[in-house]
Write a protein that binds this DNA or RNA. Structure first.
Lengths: 218, 218
DNA sequence: GCATAATATGAGTGATTACTCACTTATATA
DNA sequence: TATATAAGTGAGTAATCACTCATATTATGC
């Protein structure tokens, strides 16, 4: 993890991140150890040691240990959830070319797999800690549920109206898609990262399964 | 949670659980707080306080805090994974009546939903802590991967040979099924427990989606 | 090159941690 | 009833916790 990558990853919209070398070290060390043993089981002294920094330095940059966690995870959630759907291009594809619903689905799956591959520890931290920290749930709520979900819902709705998708409720359809994709990503990167994977084939299978599962029969 | 239920739930095969009233209180309190704030963030003094017990009493029954966690989660994993498939009845249905693959699937889904509904805190603890504790991963490995998975695999294999299921690899087919079911259970009981759910309909939809997803087209 | 500010340090803080142990109380056995 | 075993107690332990602060180092602007 180099400085620029960490910086752009952890930048929240509207505010820039000031990064000294030591602060980058702290962030990288915290991400590593939080992912390894969980937030609560991680001590600030251990973070400082791995970062090659005095313990006090952590608290010069972050008010508290929890503040450090949020400084890492909040922007991570935003980058995980928002950017793919936020791009205008995708939105257009979604709305205009309903025939290529499966193409958009494949692009979405591929894109999110690549994002997680580059950010496995961050992905693990968010998955673990979102259950216990209200602020993270709110961040997820504000980004995914309020911004992204309405767009996806509209797309599914249009596809249903056009007669291509079954009239499962939209949450049900969406949950079916997300379960399949998350199930693969978690198995691929967290449960069995060492196994040999034919990702191209697995993606094909997922798209096929999902489309057959939610499409109307001819 | 009454004593008998806790007892049969936390009993490992081959060894009985000796339960005094105070020990039950400790177990119930530990399950509650572990689920609320996570294992690492929970202190033994807090468990003792909620259980109405001296802190030393915990360590009379369990060698360590981790021993208490394992005493709760190891049997919980076994009961979550094994019992449904272990019953001879189900095994027979699986093998003989391939035509009712979807019926077996529906029965499995319903059965596991009911189990989780009765054990939400335990389910949450296992889901959270299995990532960090090797012993839990081994317990899962020994029960699911070594005992149950071969049986399921055989069933899927037979259904594929008979020409009803697509020739996705067995892990892929199984992951597709488990992702869908786990996705629903996690959404239903952990993410949105307060929402109104039409479970019967959701189960129907899941079965339909899965069967369409993995079945051969006519 | 000097002044000012930003960054970094690490010993020190009180609180809390998991766990111990000498002791008391309850239960079972003979 | 006497005795042995098991269950329960709570004050006490050293270690560790997140966090502070006076001081030291480094970077920046003039």
């Amino acid at each position: 993890m180099d400085e620029k990558y960490v910086k752009q990853l952890l930048e929240m919209e509207g505010q820039e991140l000031k990064l000294t070398e030591k602060k980058v070290n702290i962030l990288v060390a915290a991400i590593e150890i939080f992912a390894e043993k969980g937030y609560s089981a991680t001590s600030t002294s251990e973070i400082a040691k791995r970062a090659g920094v005095a313990e006090g330095t952590i608290f010069r940059h972050y008010d508290s240990k929890k503040d450090l966690l949020l400084g890492i995870t909040k922007p991570a959630i935003l980058k995980m959830v928002v950017p793919y759907f936020a791009s205008q291009m995708v939105e257009e594809v979604f709305k205009d070319e309903i025939t290529s619903f499966d193409g958009v689905l494949r692009a979405f799956i591929t894109n999110r797999i690549e994002f997680v591959r580059k950010n496995i520890p961050l992905f693990k931290i968010v998955l673990q800690e979102i259950a216990f920290h209200n602020e993270l749930q709110e961040t997820f709520q504000e980004s995914f549920l309020n911004q992204i979900l309405p767009k996806i819902s509209e797309t599914i709705y249009i596809a249903q109206k056009s007669g291509r998708l079954k009239d499962f409720s939209i949450p049900t359809t969406l949950r079916f898609i997300m379960s399949t994709v998350m199930g693969f990503i978690i198995t691929r990167f967290l449960i069995m990262p060492e196994a040999e994977w034919n990702e191209k084939e697995e993606i094909d299978n997922m798209v096929e399964c999902i489309m057959n599962g939610i499409s109307k029969n001819n």
